[in-house]
């Protein structure tokens, strides 16, 4: 494992922990899109089916379990926790799941490395992860005012994606036959979706003002 991959995993982990910590300590999920969180739970549930079939490493297994448990916990908190759920702004978070899930699934049926259930689910999870942030970005645009933790959450997710791209470049030059078009293209699309957000994030950071997105 290279340094980019490890740093990518750690920022990914940090993003989830920041979110859980925010929800757990201030008992609020204001500004967080339940739709995005449900899509991430679906992403992990479909991608990590190999937990039952392949063993890669202890690190790999533990991280997968952490992502599964944390993503489902976040969804549970927002939907069912008696205090947290009151802060969920249902009327603003209107993005439809199937708008993203259905095209991703159809695409996975057509473009995949192997036509098996496990492989199609894995490919589906890659496509879905690429676009799962969209409901969150729409919500950010709508509410405009973003609290620090929500901003940091999206920033950490973007950092994770960027580091994964560096990881792929590194692996391409250091490992023989490391060519994965499906992973790369969906990963690139995913990272590009953050570009706009990043622009405003850095502007507000540079000018030392609270992050606000244009309407």
């Amino acid at each position: 494992m290279n340094i980019f991959r490890l740093a990518g995993d750690m920022t990914h982990l940090a993003s989830v922990l920041v979110l859980l910590l925010k929800i757990h300590t201030i008992k609020s999920c204001a500004g967080i899109s339940l739709k995005t969180q449900e899509l991430y739970a679906l992403v992990f549930a479909t991608r990590y089916l190999d937990l039952f079939t392949d063993y890669i490493s202890l690190y790999n297994t533990l991280m997968k379990l952490i992502f599964l448990v944390s993503s489902f916990s976040i969804v549970w908190y927002i939907r069912h926790h008696k205090i947290v759920r009151r802060s969920y702004d249902k009327d603003q978070d209107t993005f439809r799941h199937y708008f993203l899930v259905l095209p991703c699934f159809l695409l996975a049926l057509v473009i995949n490395e192997k036509f098996t259930v496990k492989e199609i689910m894995w490919t589906f999870s890659l496509y879905l992860e690429a676009v799962a942030i969209l409901p969150q970005l729409v919500l950010l645009q709508r509410t405009r005012n973003i609290d620090n933790l929500t901003g940091q959450y999206v920033f950490l997710l973007g950092a994770y994606r960027s580091l994964y791209i560096l990881n792929w470049i590194y692996r391409y030059f250091t490992e023989p036959h490391y060519v994965h078009w499906i992973t790369w293209i969906s990963g690139l699309v995913q990272t590009l979706l953050y570009a706009d957000f990043f622009y405003y994030y850095f502007q507000s950071w540079k000018n030392n003002v609270k992050l606000e997105l244009p309407a």
């Binding site: 190999d50 490395e113 692996r171 023989p176 490391y178």
Partner: peptide, 10 residues
């Protein structure tokens, strides 16, 4: 060709 090398990623 090890076409599964990306599977060790998260």
């Amino acid at each position: 060709v090890n076409s599964n090398s990306a599977k060790d990623e998260l």
